[in-house]
Design a protein around this nucleic acid. Structure first.
Length: 202
DNA sequence: TAGTCGCTACTTTAGGACCT
DNA sequence: AGGTCCTAAAGTAGCGACTA
């Protein structure tokens, strides 16, 4: 196993493409493509397949990626332990799934109190769709899922939903848009959200 | 609707630099 | 000398915009 090749593969999937990964790694796309090809030859099966103009992992690629996540997370925690003198492996790990629809600032706000504990856990955050995250929760790969909606009532998995907070939603419009649709700001405010029916809303 | 063009992303090939 | 890693150049393929 050449861990440099594995790191290139891992970076490509995290960056979302060979070109973006090559920019992060200060290499050319040809180099990354060639190195990943060598990794595939050593493993004996393809890890990436072309989809449109990009690439996506094969089943084997997803398996390798899960191991690579653990390998490089362990490497990062080793560096942290060397820098801080605190062995991260001795601290509890809180594995959190964050739904795509949740703004990162909100997720940070929700998780921040955990980091203020006397013995703060090591946070491992995973982003994804709610359905996939709940599946991970069901098989105990996650401890917690942060979402902007409660778990579906027809979910076959037993989970507990807790309201952690509320936030408002802001709508912005140019004044001339209100005028064009025959509304004034005062009337639109009092008739919200019914007034949206007349608005070109994206 | 089909063909063309330009752009983007990726792969292949050839060859150079460096290290053991 | 041979292996590894890298780049430049050329080629392939997908996608969107434009046009007849």
């Amino acid at each position: 196993m050449n861990y440099k090749h594995l790191h290139y593969f891992w970076t490509v999937l995290r960056a979302g493409g060979i070109v973006r990964a090559s920019e992060q790694l200060h290499l050319t796309p040809q180099t990354l493509s060639g190195q990943i090809k060598q990794l595939e030859e050593r493993i004996g099966q393809p890890l990436l397949r072309k989809v449109g103009r990009g690439v996506e992992p094969t089943d084997a690629g997803r398996l390798v990626m899960r191991y690579a996540d653990d390998i490089f997370a362990l490497g990062a925690s080793m560096q942290e332990a060397l820098a801080t003198g605190r062995d991260a492996r001795r601290t509890a790990v809180l594995r959190v799934g964050i739904a795509d629809s949740v703004p990162k600032a909100v997720a940070f706000h929700v998780l921040e109190p955990a980091m203020a504990l006397p013995e703060p856990p090591r946070l491992a955050c995973h982003e994804g769709g709610l359905t996939g995250l709940l599946g991970e929760l069901a098989v105990h790969r996650l401890d917690l899922v942060v979402s902007d909606v409660p778990a579906p009532v027809n979910l076959s998995v037993r989970v507990y939903t807790h309201l952690l907070g509320r936030t408002g939603v802001a709508f912005f419009a140019a004044p001339r848009l209100l005028q064009a649709t025959g509304w004034t700001l005062r009337r639109a405010r009092s008739a919200f959200p019914a007034c949206l029916a007349d608005m070109p809303l994206l």
